[in-house]
């Protein structure tokens, strides 16, 4: 099944620019055949990290990945047919990412799967990763994820496959890696 995904991973400290999901994207659930929205706030993430096991490899991986996050929000939509969502629906989101604070650090276009994935990073004044937005789209789906907090590329890669966040090949960025389940 084809899935188009829009991922917004924004870990932004207080005062940092926030990414808002455009209203037209939020209405896509009515058109989608399947939709899933997951929201994990800072309290939930911190507590989850505290109680996740270090002994269980899967839990340990998640624990490490979420330990510095303030929030995670995933919006995933799958459609029955091509063209049931307008790629322009994502433009409002991309417009927010056009600000100088954000940099598009990864863009993947797959002709075979017709999947587009874009990863945007936000770097704070101290040179630390302060936000990430990932937009991945296929003809029959859309997913949106928002994360706030701090993590490195390896942790970002480890988040792939969790909470409906797609797996990402960040090897090209030098520090990340792809875990294949």
């Amino acid at each position: 099944m084809k899935i188009a995904a829009v991922f917004i991973l924004a870990w932004a400290p207080l005062g940092a620019q926030e990414i808002k999901l455009p209203a037209r994207l939020e209405k896509l659930a009515a058109k989608a055949e399947e939709s899933v929205n997951i929201t994990l706030d800072g309290t939930t993430l911190r507590l989850a990290a505290r109680f996740l096991s270090d002994k269980d490899s899967e839990e340990a991986r998640v624990k490490k990945a979420i330990s510095g996050l303030e929030s995670v929000s995933v919006h995933s939509y799958q459609f029955a047919r091509d063209g049931e969502y307008d790629p322009a629906d994502v433009n409002g989101l991309r417009a927010q990412l056009a600000s100088p604070a954000w940099s598009r650090i990864l863009g993947v276009k797959s002709t075979a799967s017709q999947e587009d994935m874009d990863v945007y990073f936000k770097i704070d004044g101290k040179g630390q990763l302060a936000g990430v937005v990932i937009i991945s789209a296929e003809p029959r789906g859309l997913i949106i994820v928002t994360i706030a907090g701090t993590l490195d590329l390896e942790q970002l890669a480890d988040l792939g496959g969790q909470f409906h966040i797609p797996e990402m090949d960040l090897a090209g960025l030098g520090k990340g890696r792809k875990d294949v389940k």
């Binding site: 659930a29 055949e33 399947e34 939709s35 899933v36 309290t43 939930t44 507590l47 505290r50 109680f51």
Partner: peptide, 24 residues
């Protein structure tokens, strides 16, 4: 805390998951 909203239109199913304070 609201955690998940999931809809399946073919099945007409909507699922909502809430949690209390996270712990063991």
């Amino acid at each position: 805390t609201p955690l998940v909203q999931a809809h399946s239109r073919p099945d007409g199913v909507a699922t909502y998951i809430f949690t209390g304070e996270i712990g063991h």
